[in-house]
Design a protein around this nucleic acid. Sequence first.
DNA 1: TGCACTATATACCGTTCGGTATGAATAGCT
DNA 2: AGCTATTCATACCGAACGGTATATAGTGCA
Lengths: 204, 204
Amino acid sequence: MNSLSKISICKGRPREFDLETALAAALRVFWKNGYEAASMAELTAAMGITKPSLYAAFGNKEALFHKALDLYEREKLAYMTSAVEAPTARAVAERLLHGALQMQTSTCDPKGCLGVISTAACGVEAEPIKAEVMKRRASSEAAIVRRFEQAKADGEFPEGLEPAALVRYLFAIMQGMALQGGSGATCNELRQLAETSMAVWPTK
Amino acid sequence: MNSLSKISICKGRPREFDLETALAAALRVFWKNGYEAASMAELTAAMGITKPSLYAAFGNKEALFHKALDLYEREKLAYMTSAVEAPTARAVAERLLHGALQMQTSTCDPKGCLGVISTAACGVEAEPIKAEVMKRRASSEAAIVRRFEQAKADGEFPEGLEPAALVRYLFAIMQGMALQGGSGATCNELRQLAETSMAVWPTK
DNA sequence: TGCACTATATACCGTTCGGTATGAATAGCT
DNA sequence: AGCTATTCATACCGAACGGTATATAGTGCA
């Protein structure tokens, strides 16, 4: 009878662009300019679609940013979640700094960090964006803090070093690296920064 | 007779606002929102003057920002120039971190750092702003590098630590502190960050 | 074929942006 | 007083902003 087995789903005219490809293009624009400075005109130009298509497919500018942020976390911030699996706190820090360094020295991606850019400056209209990014960063930090508490229980840290403080310190370095990377620092300079950070990493 | 001792100078109608006060108000707006997100409407409202008065007194938005940046460096970044007078590299770092900490924990100033905010994200129109801020930061960094080279000659550093790399590392921490301060970190958290940084500072 | 549905392209919406023309108001100078 | 110079307040400029109405084009289904 009614054969709804076939995945017809869509009755109307099929869209002429690929959602993921367009989203990736949007991500690059947000990444390069930040949320507010990324105009709909530049976004649609980079995505190769018109404004009505964008709004039909992604909702509005803010919803588009959220989906781009999802893609960013999924593809570019994977090293953060995998870093906690390192055997020691020092190795965790090494993986994090190495991952951050690779992000900034990649030749095919924009410089800087989307998260850093989005929380640094914003007008009133971008406050919810900033809040969302801060929330996600907090959950990333929390995961590393838990890992470092384990490391402390394992006796990896000298006296008086709190895991939460050490994570904040480590994240500050990575944020500074992203900032310097976005401000034209060379690969060598950033590598020196990562190496210096590891050179002073506390040992028991 | 002709008493030109009095500072007459100007013939026309005297301006009804104080230049320095208005500039300080503008600085706070730029500091809070960044260059692009600070609209002329918000600036004039905070400064208590109208748009034509602003343009007559300061030129345009970009010139106003430059003058606000001058004020910022003069009043808020004085600790950077005085830090180099500290007796050791460690003391220099301590002063810098302490100064940065005080900036972020001040209750009467906006959070974050104007320099960090201005270099993090910007559209094409703010590129010259970003370039100017980067130039000024580079000169600040250069002064600290020179001081650390002296410290290295004095044998204050362990083997293999380059002054330039150490300065970049230190600035990354301060930039990260400014970012976290602008993202709602508490005073205690920022103090922990500064203390952790000093706790791991390299000793010979 | 004709209907229902969706994506497309163009042209437009109201608002806000940075920046100004204009005329009245207020001062010093002669 | 009268002239000149400068500031003030209002109202306005063209351009760009995020977002949409509308009409056309392309698909699956009956």
